[in-house]
Each structure stands twice: as structure tokens, then as C-alpha cells.
Design a protein around this nucleic acid. Structure first.
Lengths: 220, 220
DNA sequence: CCCGTAATTATGCAAGCGTATAGTTATTGG
DNA sequence: CCAATAACTATACGCTTGCATAATTACGGG
């Protein structure tokens, strides 16, 4: 008469943590932060809700881990798009384009990001993660910019490089935001071209994608 | 032994609605969307929780009204900064500066916006409000841009004006975002200058504020 | 003057939340 | 081969939530 007990499956700690994090992200992306309850997360991860407190000290801890995972995924995807070889100018163009096109820029990523952002103000550790991730992307941009300008024979001091990075970061973020907020309002390549044109205008450096020297997925 | 009953105060419907909306915004800005419960909102508005359902059909309805109020306030503040007279170029500069400086750009506004954004996906009426507000600001920018370019003797077709508006909007949004996310990472005027320089570079049109023209660095 | 009506308060309710904990089942070292 | 232990399930608890409704109060027209 009692419902049959759930089948007992033993799994490694890492795989369980990852499953919980992925379930959290999926729920938040789908139906907002409020949908990411411990029960829903556990169900989506295929385990019972007790596990979440067995692997994370609290739900907030799990949320934090999910936030880190998401942000690292975003940055890594953009960095990966740059590839290893080619000119700095081309790598910069590739990073810019990747940052305003799927899968980095899409409604799911924006929704997820927005869901996390408001937690940043209350939890200091989430704020730390936020700043770190934010500045890391900007630093990536800044070094590519400085390198690309150097290739063109222009030497900029650190202050100017910083301002360039802030401005280009803003363009990219703004377009990333628009791509996620109004995915049907633009052609698929339109935002990429606008991003490249704008960054080029800001830097005074033509940015054209060297399609044939585009790196492929093979590098790592 | 029974606690004394709350003093009975009769008020107009508009003032009550406004009080509820302001309380909602204050709570969301302060402690996130989850803190904006009907009880907390009512307490902050100085009334009992029954009133919220007396003036709004549901809590979601109140949230929607608060969203509209906030977004309209943001756009209106930027528009107001442009003033009525002066050249279009100067009005454009004023709008750009206003959009990346307080009170339009600040942590509270960002936190509030992020709190709303993730609701946009579930509720169609909030999505409608979102698109409408979004495009209205961009249209404001686009008309100012077209006018300013015309002043300089440059006629751009509708397609190019649209791309310019998208790009400038992106710069402004990105800097607005950074100003709200990392309020201590920039000098107070720094983002305004970067915004003006970037928009100027994108449009190929020098943007200098009339009233107080600090001769900043040359772009490019 | 007073009563009907609308505004406002107070209270109750079912559902869902995060967390704690007791009970159950694999794995493992000796 | 059998405890000991860690992984895992199941359930209960206290709290909060949005919403509904009964009780109370002010106000305006007869």
C-alpha cells in the first residue's frame, strides 16, 4: 500500500553536484529564479531533495555555484571563439562577434543573468564573483585591444587602453543585452556587424573578420 | 488585551495606488523582488495588506504597474535632461550624459531593472511593456541622431539611422549597466566622457557639451 | 439624523518554501 | 563475511506566501 521506494542509485559527488547545478540553471532560465526551489531542483536532477543539503551547505550555496558556473561558461565561450592563432585584430573581432551572437547572447543567458544580478547586492560572496567575472572579461578585451593597436603601429598608454576597453565592453554588453531582450528585432548577423563597426569606430581601427583564417573548434 | 485597532484613514484611490507602487519599487530596489511581498508592501505604504487586492486585481498587476512607472521614470528623466532648446547635437549629448549618470544610472535602478527583467518572459503584458519602453528610448535616440547629423549637413537614410541608433543605444545601455553594477569602479564623470566619445566616434560627429565644455582627449 | 455604501482593517486558509532529521540501502575495510 | 560508514530517501516542522472573507469604520444622500 505504501508507494514503492525510489530506486537507490549511488553516484560520485562531482556528478551529483554538477547535476544539481545544471538543474538549477535550467529551472532559472526556464521559469525564473522563483521556480528554482529545492524540490524542483532535486526532481529535475533526478534525486530527492535531501541531497541538495548533503552536497551544499545551503540553497544559497548552490545558487552561488550555479552563478559561477554560468558566468565562467559565458566568458570561456567568448574566449574560445578567439582561437589561438591569427592576428590580435582578428582575434578581437572574433571575440566581439561571439559575445553578441548565440550561444553567448541569447534570451536564456540574459534571463539567467538577470535572475542572478539582484542577488549580488545582498550576498557579498556573489558580489565578489560578479566583480571578478566582470573585470576578467574586460581585461581580456583590453589586452586584445592593446595588442591589436600595437600591430597597427599605435602605442596607447594604460589609461587610454582602459578607456577603450570600457567603451568596447559597453558596446558589447549593450548589444548582448539587446540580443537577449529582443531576439526577434534583429537579423542574425546584424548585431555582429554593428558591434564590429562600433568597436572599429571607437578604436579607429578597421575590424574585418578574416573568414578563412577563422579558427575551428579543434583547439581544445 | 486585544491590540488597538489601526487608525482608520480614508484616502483617494490615486494616492493609494501611487503609495503602493512606490512601496513596491522601494522594496524591490532595496532587497530584491522576493522582498516585495504583499505584507511588506502594505506595511511600507502605511496600510493593511487587504488594500493591495482592493486597488489591484492581483499582486502581479501591481508589479506590472510598478514596472511601467519605473521605466517611464527612467526615460522621462533622460528626455528631460535634453531640455527644449539648443542644437540637436547638444541635446543628444545631454541625453547621452544623463543616461549614464545618476539618477538614471545607479545601482538601485539596475537592481530594479534586473528584478523586473526575468518576469518579462512569463507575463506577456510585461513583455509588451518592456518592448514598448525599450523601443521608445531608442526612437528618441534615433531622431536626435538624425537631426544632429542633418545639422552637420549629413543626410543618412532610415536604415543607417537605425543602425546608428542601435549602436549608440548599446553603448549607452552598456555603460548604464556598468555604472549600476560597479558604481565605485569609475570616476563620476568618466563614464559620461566615454559615452560621449564613443557615440561621437560611432557617428563620426564631435559631441561636446555646450554648458561646460571640458576639453578632453582627442578621439582617435 | 441616520442609514446604505464603499473603503479599510483584521483574520483565516491552503499551499509552498527551506531546513532538519529519522530511517533505509549500498559500499567497504578488516 | 560482516559491522561501520557514508550515501541516499522520506517525512515532518515551522514559517511565509498570496488570496479570500468577515468585521469595522467613515462618508454622503435622503
Amino acid at each position: 500500500m505504501s508507494a514503492e521506494r525510489r530506486s537507490f542509485k549511488r553516484e560520485g559527488a562531482d556528478s551529483r553536484k554538477e547535476a544539481l547545478i545544471r538543474a538549477t540553471l535550467a529551472l532559472m532560465a526556464d521559469r525564473g529564479p522563483s521556480a528554482a526551489t529545492v524540490r524542483a531542483i532535486a526532481e529535475k536532477a533526478g534525486i530527492t531533495q535531501g541531497m541538495i543539503r548533503h552536497y551544499f551547505s545551503s540553497k544559497e550555496d548552490l545558487i552561488n555555484a550555479a552563478y559561477q558556473t554560468h558566468m565562467h561558461g559565458q566568458t570561456d565561450a567568448a574566449k574560445r571563439a578567439a582561437g589561438a592563432g591569427g592576428t590580435a585584430r582578428n582575434r578581437l573581432a572574433l571575440v566581439v562577434r561571439a559575445s553578441v551572437t548565440p550561444p553567448v547572447a541569447d534570451p536564456t543567458a540574459l534571463s539567467l543573468w538577470a535572475g542572478f544580478i539582484h542577488m549580488v547586492w545582498r550576498d557579498p560572496s556573489m558580489r565578489a564573483t560578479h566583480e571578478q567575472t566582470y573585470l576578467r572579461y574586460r581585461d581580456l578585451l583590453q589586452s586584445l585591444i592593446a595588442e591589436a593597436l600595437a600591430e597597427a603601429g599605435r602605442i596607447v598608454d594604460a589609461d587610454e587602453a582602459r578607456r577603450f576597453a570600457i567603451a568596447c565592453n559597453a558596446v558589447v554588453d549593450g548589444l548582448w543585452l539587446e540580443a537577449g531582450a529582443l531576439p526577434d528585432a534583429f537579423e542574425e548577423d546584424e548585431l555582429a556587424y554593428i558591434a564590429l563597426d562600433s568597436v572599429a569606430a571607437i578604436l579607429g581601427l578597421p575590424l574585418i573578420l578574416d573568414e578563412q583564417c577563422e579558427p575551428d573548434r579543434e583547439n581544445t
